[in-house]
């Protein structure tokens, strides 16, 4: 994609707003449509777009494969760990009202943590699947498209 000047400039302009929008969708999910799943996908799209236009090596310098693989597990651990914390605080598994003095505030904290876990896992899985596909030598050359 080295010869596509417009794509390169637009990608540079768009990558940061896409990530910002992903964070908005992630943390505003209590009030508007969206949540961890959508935010994770949108966050991954920023990196995938960067990878498509600038090449896999460049995006893997920014976001190395080993970190992505660990983040996949970390998200699921955040989700499951929230449940363990509520159990340690004396309530049922994933009953967030244990997390704060006021049950409603506990629900807010719990939903926040759980959605964060969803977002981390989803975006890491999407990025690592993209890395896996794009990391193999293609059988079609660039000109044939």
């Amino acid at each position: 994609m080295r010869h596509h000047l417009i794509l390169r400039v637009v990608t540079k302009l768009l990558a940061a707003p896409i990530m910002l929008f992903a964070l908005y969708v992630q943390f505003h999910g209590d009030f508007s449509p969206g949540g961890g799943f959508q935010a994770g996908v949108i966050f991954a799209v920023a990196f995938i777009l960067f990878g498509i236009v600038f090449g896999l090596d460049k995006v893997q310098q920014v976001f190395p494969t080993w970190i992505v693989h660990r983040l996949m597990a970390l998200g699921a651990l955040i989700y499951g760990g929230t449940g363990v914390v509520t159990m340690l605080l004396g309530k049922a598994y994933l009953d967030y009202s244990a997390l704060a003095h006021h049950p409603e505030h506990g629900q807010h904290y719990g939903i926040f943590a759980v959605e964060l876990g969803v977002g981390v896992t989803v975006s890491a899985v999407m990025i690592s699947v993209y890395y896996a596909f794009a990391g193999r030598p293609p059988r079609i050359s660039d000109e044939e498209w």
Partner: peptide
Amino acid sequence: QIDVPNIVTAILASYRGYDTLGEVVVVF
């Protein structure tokens, strides 16, 4: 009970927290 304006989020993350945990594990 949850005090969240988006009921979809309340159902997904709190009332149906187990199911969503299952979904995350499936994605993983």
